[in-house]
Write a protein that binds this DNA or RNA. Structure first.
Lengths: 173, 173
DNA sequence: CAAATTAAGTCAGTGTTGTTGACATATTTC
DNA sequence: GAAATATGTCAACAACACTGACTTAATTTG
């Protein structure tokens, strides 16, 4: 009985006496700042903000999404969404079609223009991941996914898994 | 010659043709949202926002910081800083002392009250890291640090290292 | 020492993104 | 037909970022 294998003695049960994990806290802060900074620069040229990015991203990833579903993913209010969605609809990055079964619903889709924007943004951010992983051992990608998933509220992890890997397609850890 | 060891063939050079890394993109988004959400709830009870959090955090971590140094870390404008710093000074979470060598400078320090707030916030966020790491193998902490560091702009990595691990004290990877 | 530079503070205005609460309109369900 | 639901809209507000211009005090420099 030498090394404990998983969640037990190893990690000093960090609650309120021991030293906080300043390094992780600060590095997540800086890493996220650079991560969104990439997209911000591109969005600026379209005179869009981060809210537009999120909408065009999730609509592109989940074609046919309804307003209610999108609100649920983004966890913002109707008002906040409608402001940016209006921009995207007016400028033809996204289009809405009335539901067939329920005509009150509006199903959202990206146009060719919207798809291009969404993919350009995703590629920008992927390039940062690729550069980072390139400096790390081969298992780093899988490790990063497991780490990030573990950082999400446990109660939401299944929901996020379903969002990220639609019908159990990819290698969900 | 079987497995390539580091940054080479393994990671499909993700630039603009291959499929973006949607999973990492989305999980970093959700993980960061939950991460800051912890602090947001506590800050609300003080009627403070995220900007106050960053200021009290970095002042607490680097006692004696000047305004210019803080602006450089946060990468915000003087105006944005002064608004929240004023709140923190007025309510005695932070105090400023004129420099000895250069009396134009204002050196910032947390008060006992400010130190408690900064530590409460850091412990909250540490608890999330601890919970996440607890579900992962023992090397996960070091792996996460390496991953997050690699995600930062390469040009800024040394600066961030110096910030996070002051005089080469800790195990900087 | 006088001039230039620097550190910090302040003023007025603007934009994005989030919030709340109330209310309107269609449509579907009971 | 009444109630519930999906969406849209209005008005107002707050946090936090920005810009550009200007002031004050202190230090550095020629």
């Amino acid at each position: 009985m030498e090394t404990a294998l998983h969640g037990n003695a190893r990690a000093q049960a960090d609650t309120s006496d021991s030293e906080p994990m300043f390094d992780l806290i600060e590095m997540l802060f800086f890493a996220y700042r650079d991560f969104v900074g990439d997209a911000d620069r591109l969005l600026e040229s379209y005179r869009f903000g981060r809210a537009h990015h999120r909408v065009v991203h999730f609509v592109n990833r989940h074609p046919g999404l309804t307003i209610a579903e999108l609100l649920d993913i983004l966890k913002i209010t109707k008002q906040s969404l409608s402001r940016v969605l209006k921009d995207l609809l007016d400028q033809n990055f996204v289009e809405a079609r009335a539901g067939v079964a329920d005509r009150r619903q509006r199903h959202l889709f990206t146009t060719a223009k919207g798809r291009k924007l969404a993919l350009d943004l995703a590629h920008l951010q992927s390039r940062r991941f690729a550069r980072a992983l390139d400096a790390l051992p081969a298992n780093a990608r899988a490790d990063a996914i497991r780490f990030l998933m573990a950082m999400i509220d446990p109660a939401d992890q299944d929901e996020v898994k379903a969002l990220v890997w639609p019908q159990g397609a990819r290698a969900a850890p």
